[in-house]
Design a protein around this nucleic acid. Structure first.
Lengths: 146, 146
DNA sequence: GTATCTGCAAACTCTTTGCAAAAAC
DNA sequence: GTTTTTGCAAAGAGTTTGCAGATAC
């Protein structure tokens, strides 16, 4: 589990910087991610988990909060091609991690990678393209399903 | 432009193998891809282009045809995170190509890559995951927008 | 001829938006 | 106090489905 106190402080600061407010709903959404650090949660997942402690929240609020957190670079929005967005803590500065997506059971596993940096430089030069972020996904069959 | 005759023959065979029929609608959808070989077409794009020669087609038929072609491995379904699926000729056996997606204008450029094969083998061993396909995307700013 | 395929309209899923009441600062 | 934020319900985008008639083989 993440050190929640520190995480809340970071949120508070980032909200304050842009004149946003710290509401209980936002705090609870943050807690959900702190308590589920290695999961890739969809809006619906977050909604269900938030309602365990804050039953009166609306789904629209969850969507708005997720958007806000992505804008503040607290969360990273991802897309695994199954028609719903997923979110996880944004730690892009630390190290890149990518995803193994099982075509049978849909499970998503992470793996580490620092090998892409070299390729990135080549691509930038060759294509005159300024790279901000990259995303690498492998589709196939996980250990259980192969 | 692709050699359409050959392409149609491949389609015919693949349909026949699974007891599907070759209809004018399916043929026209195939033509659209043959005439737009380096584009990443959405269902709506295909619909608009098909209607130029076959105005009475329904959007649902386009969706069903794209699904079918993806199942037959004639097309590859892709997702660039903008909320609609894109399709292009499946040529995964030939060489992998990946995508540069501009965060400002949304343009999608392809680039070649054969460097990932080595990484793939390592990942398979380490994670006990059988890789079928991979997808690499770089997000950033294209030459015009940087 | 018969099973597949089509167009249409309605349904479905995920996400966004408008609005008046409520809450953060 | 004022501005932001909320919950609700309705709308929106993309996609899928049910059905009766049409078509490929």
């Amino acid at each position: 589990m993440k050190k929640l106190g520190h995480t809340v402080d970071v949120l508070k600061q980032k909200l304050y910087d842009k004149e946003y407010k710290l509401t209980p709903q936002r705090r609870v959404v943050l807690e959900v991610f702190a308590n589920n650090p290695e999961k890739h949660l969809s809006a619906e997942d977050v909604y269900d988990k938030v309602r365990e402690t804050y039953p009166e929240i609306g789904l629209a609020t969850v969507y708005r909060t997720l958007d806000l957190f992505a804008e503040l670079d607290i969360l990273q929005k991802m897309d695994f091609g199954d028609g719903r967005a997923r979110y996880e803590f944004s730690e892009s500065e630390v190290h890149h991690h990518h995803h193994l997506i099982c075509l049978k059971c849909g499970s998503v596993t992470e793996f580490e990678d620092d090998l892409l940096e070299a390729l990135e430089a080549v691509i930038e030069k060759k294509n005159h393209f300024e790279i901000i972020n990259h995303e690498l996904k492998f589709y196939g069959y996980c250990n259980k399903c192969r």
